[in-house]
Amino acid sequence: MIDPEIAAAVDFSRPPLTAAGIAARRASNRVVTDAELTRDGSVTFTEEDADGVPVLVLRPAGSAGPPVLHLHGGGMVAGTRRSDLHVLAEWVSQLGVTLVSPEYRLAPEHPHPAPVRDCYRTLMWMARNGLASPVVAGTSAGGGLAAAVTLMARDLGGPAVRGQLLMCPMLDDRCETPSSHQFLDGTTWVRASNITGWTALLGDARGGPDVSPFAAPARAADLSGLPPAYVDVGSVDVFRDEAVGYASRIWQAGGDAELHVWPGGCHGFDQLVPEAALSRRARATRMAWLRRTLYL
C-alpha cells in the first residue's frame, strides 16, 4: 500500500509509457527553474561542456566541497540535466558539494552504449578538471547509469569513484523479479513502462543472453572491488527486488552497502512529494550517508 500522505498528493491515473508516447512524456516532464536551482542564492550554477557532453555544474555560494556526479532519471528515454535537481540542489546548499549533472543522450534515438558513454565521459572530464573521486549518484534510470559508470571505472582502470548512491535504481532489463511482475498498475512506474524503457535502450536484445552489465548492472557477474554503495527504494516500486538483490550481492562479494526499503514509497516518491514525512526521512538518511562518505 502506498503511504497515505503520498497517495493523496500523486495522480496515479497516468497510463503506462509506450514507445508511441515517449515524445509526449518528454514534453510533460517537470521543468526545474533557475530559482529552484539557486535556492535563494545559496547555490550558483554554470552550463559547461564535458568533452562534448553538456553539463550543469552547481556550486555552493561559499567555498566548494567534494564533487558529486548526478545522473538524472527518466526511464532511459526522458529527462534533462536539470531533472531531479529541484530536490537534490539541497546537497549543494546543505553539504557544500559541487554537483555535476550531464545531459546524456536518450534512447531510442541513442541506444546503448550512448547514454552510459556520455556519463563515463563526464566522469573522466571531472577527473581532469579538479573534480576527482566523486560520489556517483543517480535516480531511477540515472541510478542504473550510476551503477554502470561505477562498474566501468572499476573495469576500465578509473577514474576513481568514492561511492555510489543509487536511488530507486533501474538495474535489470530482464524484468523478471517478483516486484517487476507485482506492479502492473496503480503506481508511478509500472511493468509495461519499464519494458518500454528497456526496449528503447536495448531493442530486441532486451532480456536476451548478451546484454552488457554496462547497460544493465544486475547482469554483472562480479560485484567485488566496488566503492561503498547506498541503495534505496520504495516498497511499492517495480525496482524494489532488483535494488535489494544488488545490495545483497555487493555484501556477498565482500563489499560495503547500505540498503533502505521505504515502506509505502512508490517510484520516485521523494521527488514527487518532497515535503511528505516519508520523503523527508528518506532524504535525511541519504544525506547522512553522503556526508559520511564525502567528509569522513
Rank of each mutant, 00 (worst) to 15 (best):
A148Y: 01
T150S: 04
M152D: 12
R154L: 00
R154V: 12
D155F: 07
P159V: 10
A160C: 09
R162A: 13
G163H: 03
L165I: 13
L166F: 10
M167S: 15
M167W: 15
C168K: 12
C168H: 15
M170I: 11
L171Y: 01
L171G: 08
D172F: 02
D172M: 08
D173F: 05
R174A: 12
E176N: 15
T177Q: 10
P178H: 08
P178T: 07
S180C: 15
F183S: 02
F183P: 05
D185H: 04
D185C: 03
T188P: 00
V190T: 09
V190E: 02
A192M: 09
A192T: 08
N194W: 12
N194T: 03
I195M: 14
T196G: 01
G197K: 11
G197I: 08
L201N: 00
L202G: 04
L202K: 03
G203T: 12
G203L: 15
D204T: 14
R206T: 10
R206L: 06
P209T: 14
D210C: 01
S212N: 10
S212V: 13
P213Y: 05
P213C: 14
A215N: 07
P217C: 06
A218G: 04
R219A: 14
R219G: 07
A221N: 10
A221P: 06
A221G: 10
A221T: 15
D222H: 09
D222M: 07
L223M: 06
S224V: 08
G225D: 08
G225S: 06
L226D: 12
P228M: 10
A229E: 06
A229F: 01
Y230I: 03
D232T: 11
D232P: 07
S235I: 11
S235Q: 05
D237G: 04
D237S: 03
D241Y: 12
D241N: 11
E242C: 07
E242K: 09
G245C: 10
G245L: 11
Y246W: 06
A247K: 12
A247M: 05
S248I: 02
I250Q: 00
W251H: 13
Q252E: 14
A253L: 03
G255C: 04
G255I: 11
G255D: 02
G255L: 02
A257K: 05
E258Y: 00
L259S: 08
H260R: 15
V261E: 00
V261Y: 07
W262T: 02
W262P: 03
G264H: 08
G268W: 01
G268M: 06
G268S: 13
Q271G: 14
L272W: 11
V273D: 02
V273G: 09
V273H: 08
P274F: 05
P274H: 01
E275L: 15
E275Q: 14
A276Q: 07
L278A: 04
S279N: 05
S279E: 01
R280Y: 01
A282R: 07
R283F: 12
R283N: 10
A284D: 05
A284S: 01
T285D: 06
